[in-house]
Simulated scan of single mutants.
Amino acid sequence: MARFRYQKKDGEFGAALASMEIPIGFAGTAAIAEAADIIKREGRQDIAAAGFSKRWQNALRVNLYPKRGASMNAAAVIYHKIQYAGVFEEGATIVGKPLLWLPLPDAPKGRGGASIRPSEYRARIGHPLYSIRRPGKAPLLGANIRVTKARSQKGISLSQLKRGRNPGGKGEVRLVPLYIGVPRVNIRDRFSIREITERAANRLADLYLKHLNPNS
């Protein structure tokens, strides 16, 4: 029977562990970065499939830590720049106080293509909104807009909204509904970012081995 004896040398284990820190840190950081790329790519595709604009898609972001180099404590933070995006992940019921005013197709658009809220309308357009009561139906908010026959078929432009009642223009002035008031809105879940993140997290072990042994 063969016998082996191992004699420990001071600092040997620590030195061996330190020599592995660089490849372990590199593999861990690379695995986190690849998983984050998967989440960002598939997450943006998921948002697009739900019918949301490029702005909404690109607002899904990833921050990697550390920002440079490698670390055994690498991490990624996945977030959406639009603060209320979470309601489309989990669904929600939003209740008005007393009403929520939802934009109709002719409501003016602001920066990024988002509709201007009624509270912003006067400051942005320069003309007031008027209540339109409809017995037994949801109330409306509208504006007096000068509309020609040709342009009325193409929708209401921002310049038409700003002209409003201005005298001397072509066409007739109409009270055009821009917003509808409802007591509440039920928003169903439309995103699957959490599910996409969990799938990518479950792949971390394989991604780690892939980057630890790039030639295997």
Rank of each mutant, 00 (worst) to 15 (best):
P118T: 13
G136W: 08
R194Y: 15
F88C: 02
N202R: 15
L209F: 12
F26K: 14
I38M: 13
I132M: 12
H80Q: 10
E90Y: 15
I22H: 15
F52R: 03
R122M: 10
V95E: 12
D189A: 15
K162V: 10
G181A: 07
L209G: 09
H211F: 08
R190H: 12
P214M: 08
E42M: 04
F4R: 14
I193V: 13
L99T: 11
Q83M: 10
A50N: 01
G126Q: 05
E12T: 07
I125N: 06
G91C: 05
A59S: 11
E34G: 03
R44H: 03
G69E: 03
P23Q: 05
K137H: 10
D46V: 01
R44F: 03
V62A: 12
A49K: 12
I116Y: 02
S71M: 08
G136P: 12
I196S: 01
R5G: 12
F191K: 04
L64W: 01
I145Q: 00
H211V: 01
V87G: 01
G142W: 00
V87A: 06
G136Q: 05
L64A: 00
I32H: 00
H127F: 07
G91N: 06
G169Q: 07
R124E: 15
S115L: 03
Q7F: 13
L60W: 00
K40D: 00
V176F: 04
I24A: 09
K149P: 14
P167L: 14
R134L: 11
D106R: 00
I193R: 01
Q83N: 15
A59T: 03
E89T: 05
Q45N: 12
V87K: 02
M20W: 13
T197K: 04
S131K: 14
P118M: 08
K40R: 11
I132L: 10
R188D: 11
G86M: 05
N215V: 07
E198T: 10
G142P: 08
P177I: 06
K210Y: 03
S71N: 08
P108A: 11
A85V: 05
P128K: 06
G112F: 06
A18T: 14
H211I: 00
L104P: 02
R146H: 06
D189M: 14
Q7E: 12
I193A: 01
V176M: 13
L17K: 06
G86P: 00
R61F: 04
S192W: 03
N186M: 10
M20A: 11
N166A: 11
R117C: 15
R203P: 00
G43N: 03
M72L: 10
G171N: 12
R134N: 06
G164C: 02
S131C: 08
K8Y: 11
A30E: 13
G86H: 02
H127M: 03
A92T: 08
I145D: 00
G181Y: 10
R146I: 00
P183A: 15
R55F: 13
A30R: 04
V87P: 02
I78R: 09
A33C: 10
G69K: 06
R165F: 14
R5D: 07
N58I: 03
G96M: 07
K210A: 02
T29K: 08
A35N: 05
K154N: 10
A30S: 13
K162Q: 02
R151G: 11
L207P: 00
H127I: 01
P128F: 01
V173E: 07
Q160V: 07
H211Y: 15
A27I: 01
N63V: 01
Y79S: 14
I125T: 07
S71H: 02
